[in-house]
């Protein structure tokens, strides 16, 4: 089996399992493919978790932004503006520095005990800290998409719900929310794709690579630096990301079909992938 040795040495290197030292000289194509693929695990991890948690927060934010109550609407508007209006790159830097300051602030609250201190340091690690940034960031972008869809829910649907005596939570859950999802889904697919792309920034933005456990781009960059040859590692990353993108389109497309299954053929919305949501 080709690449078996490289796979054994570096297959789980991004998680810290396998050879301690990265390949230094005589770097083979196998090692590049395996190690970059190993790094992809981090991209997938960040993408899935941020997207998963972000979905629920985004729904809450979108509802808050559509709220007539100023006290609820304004914080949601500001949150969305701040995270959509600034570069993700800067958000990474800033949040990392904020998390780094945590334990030093925590020293004043020694009564909290050792356990708390041991936990706060995790915020400065990529697996938690960067995940939080990505979660907040995608929540803001998704909330804006959901908010737009929420406002476009046909009035007739809501009138019909009233006529059936649905109100409050029940109306939201049965009528408003499913329609919002259906309307927002194509744009949300875009957001999912570009969130996965954004995960490539994590190890370039101050979150340290712990024992050289990094994501796909981290290793690609390592190889490009070592070999002075960009024509091998970057196309490998590109290939992995294209595969990942196709997977997302496949999965989201299935869900889209399900969301639209009650509609006659002509009215179904089709997914169109447009690069409009990059940070």
């Amino acid at each position: 089996m080709i690449c078996a040795e490289a796979l054994q040495d570096y297959g789980l290197r991004a998680l810290g399992i396998g050879e301690r030292l990265l390949p230094q000289t005589d770097i083979s194509l196998c090692q590049q493919i395996v190690l970059i693929g190993s790094g992809m695990m981090w991209n997938v991890y960040f993408g899935i978790l941020a997207l998963g948690f972000g979905f629920f927060f985004a729904v809450a934010l979108a509802v808050a932004k559509a709220s007539p109550a100023r006290l609820i609407r304004k914080p949601a508007e500001w949150f969305i503006f701040i995270f959509r209006g600034s570069p993700l790159f800067i958000q990474f830097f800033m949040v990392y520095e904020a998390f780094v300051m945590l334990p030093r602030v925590g020293i004043e609250f020694t009564f909290l005990g050792v356990e708390i201190a041991a936990e706060t340091r995790w915020f400065a690690r990529a697996w938690l800290g960067a995940l939080i940034v990505l979660f907040l960031n995608t929540s803001a972008y998704t909330a804006e998409i959901f908010y737009g869809a929420l406002r476009n829910v046909p009035k007739g649907d809501l009138d019909a719900a009233d006529a059936y005596g649905l109100s409050g939570w029940k109306r939201f859950r049965r009528i408003t929310f499913p329609t919002t999802m259906r309307l927002a889904w194509p744009a949300y697919t875009n957001e999912a794709i570009f969130l996965f792309h954004a995960t490539a920034l994590v190890f370039f933005s101050s979150f340290p690579a712990f024992q050289q456990r990094g994501d796909a781009l981290y290793y690609a960059n390592y190889f490009a630096d070592r070999t002075f040859n960009p024509f091998v590692p970057y196309p490998i990353v590109a290939f992995y990301f294209v595969v990942l993108t196709l997977l997302i389109i496949l999965i989201f497309g299935r869900i889209n079909v399900r969301l639209n299954r009650h509609l006659p053929n002509g009215q179904r919305t089709r997914l169109r992938i447009r690069p409009q949501l990059m940070r």
Partner: peptide, 15 residues
């Protein structure tokens, strides 16, 4: 490992 010396010291300060 860190890229700059300053970051190595910061890593100790923040535990």
């Amino acid at each position: 490992e860190f890229a700059t010396p300053d970051e190595t010291v910061a890593a100790v300060r923040n535990g």
